[in-house]
Amino acid sequence: MINKKVTNVQEALVGVKNGMTFMLGGFGLCGIPENAISELVKLDIREVTCISNNAGVDDFGLGLLLQNKQIKKMISSYVGENDEFERQMLSGELEVELTPQGTLAEKCRAAQAGFPAFYTPAGYGTEVAEGKETRDFDGKMYVLEPAFKADFAFVKAWKGDAAGNLVFKGTSRNFNPNMCGAATITVAEVEELVPVGELDPNNVHVPGIFVQRIFQGKEYEKRIEQRTVRQKQ
């Protein structure tokens, strides 16, 4: 077993620097690396480019980095629900690259899997494809999209072990597995770090080879963005 365990978030984030590119897992506030985000705020790492499907809300998730004006550029598919984001974007302080959601996921996966680029039909004929190479395959047009390049990937899983194996719960999986191994260093935080051997190898969602550092996260808030319920009849 190759040990990936680090003692805490401070150790997990050794090497993060101003101007770096980070991938952050999560969909809305579901499955976001809460501990890594808090630590990036504390470390006051600035001028960063964040690859993340969304940008959090004003007072949680990536919104915390935005409030602190640490983000230079966001690469996302959807960035509603965040007033500070809107203000910084409209004033030109924040650069935003909107990317179709499936393309965003695949640009992560391509980086993970060693593909420099791939063709996708998404965005063909729209402004997303402007300036990009397009090509006809069997009568349908596709856009060439390059893989992402990132310095750190911060992901969050439900369970993990010191070997770096990860298991996710529900829809908090989302972009997290696609970002593992897609950056130079992948840092996984988990709700529960279990002893090696406890995870059934049949049920590991991300093998430890894609993770460089893993730590037991703490104080997860797991905030719900839209609480929708029905009444019992």
Partner: peptide, 21 residues
């Protein structure tokens, strides 16, 4: 499936609209 009953919401189970399901 449908929205959960009150008290049974799970932050880890949402739809693309970020609603609990």
């Amino acid at each position: 499936g449908p929205f959960p009953f009150e008290g049974e919401e799970d932050a880890d189970i949402i739809n693309a609209g970020k609603q609990t399901i």
